[in-house]
């Protein structure tokens, strides 16, 4: 079981969700985050002073998937979230020991 954690552009969330739905991934967790990689921020002017806003809004999408589909999921996310410009985001894959369904108390068989 793997946790696939992607940080994408806010306007790409719907595309990623659609791509994951096509792979029958049953759920996802989405968090609004801020951060920066190589992408420079934008310049803002408030009351005559110029600022560089370096932490830009991104969206973090987390899905837990079984090992046999993880490559397919990553490919789908990368394709859906890519624009080709700096600032498209990252995908991280982490191992998951196990998960439990809170309602039933059963161990997940992803």
């Amino acid at each position: 079981m793997k946790l696939v954690k992607s940080i994408v552009r806010p306007n790409k969330v719907d595309d990623v969700r659609d791509a994951l739905e096509k792979l029958s991934i049953p759920g996802m967790t989405v968090t609004e985050v801020r951060g920066h990689g190589r992408q420079k921020g934008h310049t803002a002017i408030y009351r005559g002073k110029e600022y560089n806003v370096s932490l830009l809004p991104k969206v973090e999408i987390e899905v837990v998937v079984s090992d046999d589909v993880v490559d397919e999921v990553i490919a789908a996310i990368v394709t859906a979230a890519r624009t080709g410009e700096i600032g498209d985001g990252r995908v991280f894959v982490l191992p998951v020991d196990h998960g439990y369904n809170i309602r039933t108390g059963e161990r997940d068989m992803v």
Binding site: R34, A44, K49, Y51, N52, L55
Partner: peptide
């Protein structure tokens, strides 16, 4: 505006 991460130019 997010609190952190902005620098004055």
């Amino acid at each position: 505006v997010h609190t952190g991460g902005s620098t004055m130019i």
